[in-house]
């Protein structure tokens, strides 16, 4: 703690702290989705984050904040579709993820999104996560989701300040693998359309990067039954 606390450095400190929380949530998110991240990366202390990602004036330098992570074997197994006659050797439908923080403090439009899309496409990342400080324009959203064969997601920094899945009122969401899903439907003799549903735009679904057609198991505490599991179809 410095003695002469000018308002500028205070501002910088505050912004740095906010960004640090977002940064940690991003890593927790990657970990929860099943990407390879180390415990040290997730638990990065504030001081270390500050020395690593701040510019000369103490303000965060978002240009440095780029992460890519590979999926773990467990995640690959989860994302592999079931074997079928037409597809005897299925490939996992997941790949390297790339996270970028947009340095623009003002409104973000199609220009920034286009460069991001281009980068993701060029580097052959499977998934891209674009994090901005302000909301992005509707046409930019459409552009972001428009690239074929790649998944691009968008979050605002303030959405990731706290990890919503750590809140006590948010039940645990577990994604089912394709095989588990088939077994579930068989066990209950259901069609997937007979399951309750969850929207792709649901905050937890966005956090977990769920895709349409997947089934998620939701485990909540129940006063009468101890634990209660329900299943929802992502739509």
């Amino acid at each position: 703690m410095d003695e002469d606390y000018s308002s500028g450095s205070q501002d910088a400190e505050r912004e740095m702290a906010r960004l640090w929380r977002t940064w940690r949530t991003v890593f927790e998110m990657l970990q929860d989705r099943g990407y390879e991240v180390t415990e040290e990366e997730v638990q990065i202390p504030f001081e270390q984050f500050k020395t690593k990602y701040s510019d000369g004036l103490g303000y965060p330098d978002r240009n440095k904040m780029k992460v890519s992570a590979r999926p773990t074997e467990a995640m690959k197994a989860k994302y592999t579709p079931v074997k079928s006659k037409s597809n005897p050797n299925p490939q996992p439908e997941c790949g390297t993820v790339y996270v970028e923080f947009c340095p623009d403090p003002t409104a973000v439009g199609t220009k920034q999104v286009r460069t991001f899309n281009h980068f993701v496409d060029e580097q052959n990342f499977h998934t891209g996560i674009f994090i901005t400080q302000t909301p992005i324009s509707p046409s930019a959203v459409r552009l972001l989701s428009g690239i074929p064969d790649r998944i691009c997601e968008h979050f605002q920094e303030q959405d990731l300040l706290v990890n919503i899945t750590r809140h006590e009122l948010v039940p645990k969401h577990v994604l089912l693998s394709a095989e588990e899903k088939v077994r579930l439907l068989e066990r209950y003799r259901l069609k997937e359309s007979q399951l309750p549903r969850i929207q792709v735009s649901d905050p937890v679904a966005r956090y977990l990067g769920l895709r349409r057609g997947q089934v998620v198991k939701i485990i909540r505490r129940s006063e009468t039954a101890g634990r209660y599991a329900s299943y929802r179809w992502v739509i």
């Binding site: 088939v182 068989e186 069609k191 997937e192 359309s193 057609g213 739509i235």
Partner: peptide, 24 residues
């Protein structure tokens, strides 16, 4: 019963599922 999950459209009314997505 082991029908792969995607082929659900085969047995249920297609119009019900049509709005969900064209690609599926």
């Amino acid at each position: 019963p082991k029908v792969p999950p995607k082929s659900i459209l085969r047995t249920s009314t297609p119009s019900l599922h049509a709005p969900s997505s064209a690609s599926t």
